[in-house]
Design a protein around this nucleic acid. Structure first.
Length: 836
DNA sequence: AGCACGCCGACT
DNA sequence: GTCGGCGTGCTC
């Protein structure tokens, strides 16, 4: 792993002092140079984690980015305190990637490191104070200090927080400083590794008794103590020592014995007498997972087979290929064959999925084929588990990773293939905090650097990717048939406006939608009702004075959540109990307005009292188990109608869903954003794709106020090409991606005029060099105030031909200008490159 | 970012 | 004089 450069330097270590430039996990622009202690000189390499003192109080985990022998000129380098790893946990390719990301997405390498490494790999330090036992001048102490010292004597040590709580002061620092001066206390750093390996307690029989005559003798002897005999017999039941003595080496989990209802005290007696022995092993957190049934590689249909061949051909010429396969075309089987092929060639494979899709059936399916070669990297996993996956990639245990966005940071060094499934998904873009990276785009960069191939898969590709395929930058493969010859669902529009006029509605449901749902229920088929809005109702209005209850911190209405009778802000998380009366006029006539999933669930229950109705949204799937339970219930057919947000449209395949109803299509279509048509098409096509599997054609009903909208026609006819042509023309006319790159700068301040002034000043500076064509705004965003901060946005469009690096440097300078300016104190600025 | 340091005003 | 508040600048 050591680079030749490092080796060369290391061989002179007798005379030369080494220095290491390290990345610290902080939002500071530079790397920092530390001195390598002599004892580490021979073994130090890039990619090792080290512990360093950073600033006066912090001790942090850093990564070695470079090793050299030039002492810094302007300051004395501090020593590296400790080296944490024997072999690099971060490889050179990753470090280069960190720099690329920092550069491209306009943030610091430290911020990249912070997001890239699971927190279990970032040791934290706590400053602790301890009473100095050789303290002998108590007369110097003030009364208060004596109290603190007395408290400190009671404990081995206390950290700052604990001390502050006891002393009942906000800033404990003064006191600590004074006590250090008087030599009454000692301050030390407690460094603590967050990752803790999973330890299993095991029991085995003393090897002495592996001999049959001794074992028989033992059993005879234990006749007197039946409880102990019981323990031994139980052990032998699991581990037949005589037949398979090698199993005895591995022993048995202690918990297996205790679960078998044996006497605990007898067990400890046996241990004490040396008949049984206890030992500990470090185990993988994933081993329990491994009772998978190895399934044969799926047999591909002829359409899948030819898609596979085409992809392989495409990879001959292109590094990236877009697979456009309609919903239900069976892309997964094609992926599996590709993955197998690449793994056989000895290269690593990364399969990226959006957050929600990962929890579902796909993982089970992949596990069956790839078993323990496959690692899963998911945000719902604990940090310890993520560290194990990271280490598993380093050690080569995991050649294949299925993961979410952040899996692009894993320490691959030999990737052969990256699959980005559902590549159009917006959750691949990170919004907060920095780095605001797009995992699909980063994947393409990684692949390029590791000479790997990328397969982007989607039924509804992003306009950008489709464009790249059109101009032949990407290869292109299509799958136009649904697997098993199932037809695409029949989509029908319902003109809700006309229906309302003709009084053919109940609530905001058209009779037609309700009737169809009813019929479907009678046929014992499942229905999905899609409404992309959680909660009961998006706002509450007073009938007398028209006041709408708003969030105190943001400029949005509060959403009413029925389940716990509270109002919630979906922007800042503010919660307040639902009040019975209007806070403005005292009237009791408060009305819920608009429809969220909760309200639809409630209304449907009234319409269909005997149906089992379930709801799937953020609120019902907070935990891993809740999510899985719900999926199981739907899969087993217990649930008749599933009401849900966009969650129901992603990666879920339910056999018996034959009807999909979209409650309100218009809100999505008219969202004020240049991507709204694309998004609406994607979302409605994906949710429609849930209807009908295995030979039966599904039905989709969409309620809209305006059924003549062109995009709806395109959705009905599954005319992606048509959508693309419309969109790409518009994007070209108005200079949006893929013809430009967009950088969004958001400025925040508690006072709106201040935010506006700063935004205007920044825009002016930007325009000076970039011109009014490229700089738009500043403008108030849709929601003007979030978390008590007023927002202004500037949009920068950079054409592809521009010197991107130069432009970004200029933008960064101007942003810094504003940040440092005395006129705009307290203005927060966020730069988002390629904003969604 | 996080935090010490320094200056300033309030209060015993 | 001591304590806390807030603005400023640095971190190898």
């Amino acid at each position: 792993m050591q680079s030749s450069e490092n080796n060369q330097v290391s061989s002179y270590t007798e005379e030369i002092t080494l220095f290491a430039d390290v990345i610290v996990p902080v939002a500071v622009p530079n790397t920092f140079t530390y001195r390598v202690p002599r004892e580490y000189a021979a073994s130090i390499t890039t990619g090792l984690r080290v512990i360093v003192q950073f600033g006066k109080t912090k001790v942090v985990t850093a990564i070695i980015a470079r090793i050299h022998n030039k002492p810094p000129e302007k300051y004395h380098a501090k020593y590296i305190l400790e080296v944490l790893d024997d072999a690099p946990l971060v490889n050179t390719k990753q470090i280069e990637l960190f720099y690329w990301i920092a550069d491209y997405y306009m943030c610091t390498v430290g911020e990249v490191m912070n997001i890239a490494l699971p927190s279990g790999l970032k040791i934290s330090s706590l400053s602790k104070v301890q009473f100095n036992p050789s303290f002998d001048t108590p007369e110097l102490l003030t009364e208060r200090e004596v109290e603190i010292i007395d408290e400190l004597k009671k404990h081995q040590s206390l950290n700052y927080d604990e001390l502050a709580r006891f002393a009942e002061v906000k800033n404990v620092y003064h006191i600590i400083k004074s006590l250090i001066q008087k030599k009454a206390i000692i301050v030390f750093e407690e460094v603590r590794e967050k990752y803790s390996p999973k330890i299993l307690k095991k029991i085995r029989l003393n090897a002495f008794y592996e001999d049959s005559s001794y074992l028989t003798a033992l059993i005879g002897e234990l006749e007197k103590t039946p409880k102990q005999l019981d323990v031994i017999l139980n052990y032998l039941k699991y581990v037949p020592v005589l037949r398979t003595p090698e199993l005895n080496k591995k022993g048995l989990e202690k918990s297996a014995l205790t679960k078998a209802n044996v006497s605990e005290s007898s067990l400890s007696t046996l241990l004490k007498n040396g008949i049984l022995e206890q030992f500990e092993v470090i185990v993988s957190r994933f081993e329990e997972d491994l009772d998978f049934v190895e399934a044969p590689t799926p047999i591909l249909s002829s359409a899948q087979e030819s898609a596979f061949t085409e992809i392989m051909q495409s990879f001959q010429e292109k590094d990236t290929t877009l697979l456009h396969g309609i919903t239900g075309s069976g892309k997964t089987e094609v992926y599996i064959k590709l993955i197998e092929q690449v793994l056989e060639s000895g290269s690593q494979v990364l399969y990226l999925l959006p957050e929600i899709a990962l929890t579902t059936q796909i993982v089970v399916r992949l596990r069956k084929v790839f078993g323990d070669k496959m690692g899963i990297y998911h945000s719902r996993f604990s940090d310890n588990e993520r560290v194990e996956v990271w280490k598993g990639v380093v050690s080569g245990k995991f050649q294949f990773i299925v993961g979410v966005r952040s899996a692009v940071f894993l320490p691959f060094d030999n990737l052969g293939l990256i699959i980005v499934d559902e590549e159009h998904e917006t959750s691949y873009k990170q919004f907060d905090p920095a780095p605001r990276y797009h995992a699909r785009d980063v994947a393409v960069v990684i692949a390029h650097r590791q000479k790997a191939k990328v397969l982007l898969g989607s039924a509804t590709p992003s306009i950008e990717s489709f464009y790249n395929a059109k101009i032949a930058r990407y290869g292109f493969v299509e799958m136009k048939e649904r697997f098993g010859n199932t037809q695409l669902p029949d989509i029908e529009l319902i003109d809700i406006k006309t229906a309302r006029k003709q009084k053919l509605t109940k609530g905001d449901f058209s009779n037609m939608m309700l009737d169809t749902m009813g019929l479907n229920f009678e046929k014992k088929q499942q229905t999905i009702l899609f409404q992309n809005r959680r909660g009961y109702s998006p706002y509450i209005q007073c009938e007398d004075c028209d006041t709408i209850v708003a969030c105190p911190n943001c400029d949005v209405s509060l959403t009413y959540h029925y389940s716990n009778q509270e109002l919630r802000c979906h922007y800042c998380g503010h919660r307040e109990p639902m009040s019975k009366t209007c806070q403005a006029c005292g009237s009791a006539k408060l009305k819920t307005r608009g429809y969220g999933t909760e309200k639809l669930e409630e209304e449907l229950q009234l319409f269909f009292p005997t149906a089992k109705i379930a709801r799937m949204d953020l609120d019902t799937t907070r935990t891993k188990t809740a999510f899985q339970t719900l999926i199981n219930e739907v899969e087993s057919g217990e649930v008749d109608i599933l009401v849900g947000t966009q969650m129901v449209s992603k990666g879920l395949d339910f056999e018996k869903v034959s009807l999909v109803c979209v409650f309100d299509a218009d809100r999505m279509i008219h969202f004020p954003d240049f991507r709204s048509s694309e998004r609406a098409f994607q979302m409605l096509t994906q949710v429609a794709g849930r209807a009908g599997r295995r030979g039966t054609q599904g039905k989709v009903l969409i309620q809209t106020n305006n059924p003549t909208q062109k995009i709806l026609k395109q959705i009905i006819e599954n005319d992606y090409e048509g959508l693309y042509q419309d969109e790409i023309k518009e994007r070209e006319d108005f200079q949006y991606p893929p013809f430009t790159r967009i950088i969004k700068i958001t400025l925040k301040h508690i006072d709106q005029p201040n935010a506006e002034k700063a935004a205007k000043a920044l825009a002016l500076q930007l325009i000076e060099k970039l011109g009014t064509q490229r700089v738009l705004g500043p403008e108030k965003p849709l929601v003007e105030r979030v978390r008590n901060q007023y927002l202004f946005e500037i949009l920068i469009k950079l054409e592809k031909a521009i010197n991107l690096k130069g432009a970004k440097t200029f933008i960064a300078e101007q942003v810094q200008n504003i940040e440092l300016s005395k006129d705009f104190k307290g203005v927060g600025i966020v730069v988002d490159v390629d904003c969604g």
